[in-house]
């Protein structure tokens, strides 16, 4: 092919323009295809999150409660054989491992939900829903872990481990001072164990330990008041005998009336002291008795009320969080 020199100058320009146009078109097609592909990818990953990962998360949580119950029952049974805390821990190791596995799988499932979502910045609602679900789920796992971890501690409080049962002095004491001393002795190791329990990851144990600690302090203070009152009483008996002697003496001497009046005033003051002593004693004794009587209820309430309420809390919150995340994904996938 021969081309005239004048026209041949135009040809490369034409070709270049044509190529440029084609390139531009191809480029935009590629961009559109990629955007679409990425969109498709995102949709798939969101669908995966909603269908698979969230389902696994819910299923993993479903396995926690039975595992907790199995462990608590196994430990209690082992301990009641009877066995020491160490032996009971050994004999319930299988259930403890199974619980730990259930928690680990739940944490993995949570991690998959948190990291598996390839959503970009626009899916703010999804990111927020995941964070909220993560917090609630994490709090649940932590509290259940704490419930299991600190159970031997809690369970051993009123056994020989911590010796809090020593707080129930009962008829072991011959008098109130002795009662106070025995109580104070039992309170030392018991308090130590209670303070350990305050560090638990489970708030129900912590709150119980706080209340028990205060209860012990109350018992100690009431025991001191009653012991002191008893001692005062003995002193009053001695004083009374003294006054009887004084009056007999005055009568024998045929003492002046002023002396009788003085003795009468002193007796009146003594009477007031006796009355006050009596009221302090009654106040403290009543509270001491009811404190001791209420202690078993305090212990029972930990599981029957507080832990139950805690579990109910999580059972209310987590399903709502899951549902909100599902709805957030649906909103994102809407077309």
């Amino acid at each position: 092919m021969t081309i005239e020199p004048v026209r041949s100058k135009r040809r490369p320009v034409l070709i270049a323009l044509a190529i440029a146009v084609v390139l531009a078109v191809v480029a935009s097609a590629v961009v559109i295809a990629l955007t679409n592909f990425a969109g498709q990818q995102r949709k798939e990953s969101l669908a995966l999150l909603k269908e698979d990962r969230l389902t696994s998360l819910v299923e993993a949580r479903g396995k926690i409660q039975p595992a907790v119950n199995a462990y608590l029952a196994a430990y209690k049974k082992a301990r009641n054989v009877p066995a020491s805390r160490e032996d009971a821990e050994k004999n319930s190791a299988k259930e403890r491992d199974e619980f730990q596995q259930a928690v680990d799988s739940a944490r993995t499932a949570l991690n998959d939900v948190q990291t598996g979502n390839g959503a970009g910045g626009e899916a703010e609602t999804i990111a927020v829903a995941i964070t909220q679900l993560g917090d609630s789920y994490q709090a649940y796992l932590d509290s259940m872990e704490g419930l299991v971890e600190s159970y031997p501690q809690f369970e051993g409080l009123f056994r020989e481990d911590a010796g809090c049962s020593g707080l129930f002095v009962g008829s072991k004491a011959a008098n109130l001072r002795e009662r106070q001393t025995l109580l104070a002795q039992a309170a030392v190791p018991c308090r130590e164990a209670v303070n350990q329990l305050k560090k638990s990851k489970n708030i129900s144990y912590v709150e119980f330990a706080r209340t028990l600690d205060n209860e012990i302090a109350q018992l100690e203070s009431h025991a001191e008041t009653t012991a002191k009152s008893e001692e005062n009483y003995n002193e009053f008996v001695r004083l009374k005998d003294e006054y009887v002697k004084k009056i007999d003496d005055a009568t024998a001497r045929n003492a002046p009336e002023a002396e009788y009046l003085k003795i009468a005033d002193e007796l009146k003051a003594l009477n007031t002291r006796i009355r006050n002593n009596r009221s302090e004693f009654d106040f403290a004794a009543k509270r001491y008795v009811s404190g001791v009587k209420d202690m078993p209820t305090l212990v029972e309430d930990v599981f029957s009320k507080n832990v139950a309420a805690q579990i109910k809390h999580h059972d209310t919150v987590i399903p709502v969080r899951v549902q909100v995340l599902k709805d957030a994904i649906d909103a994102e996938l809407a077309e």
Partner: peptide, 26 residues
Amino acid sequence: RADVVRLDKQRVIVDNSMNLYDPLVQ
């Protein structure tokens, strides 16, 4: 249509989220 569907989902989310106040405040 997608905007309406999305808005409706958002409505459900807000309504559902109100149920969390009770347990959280408690």
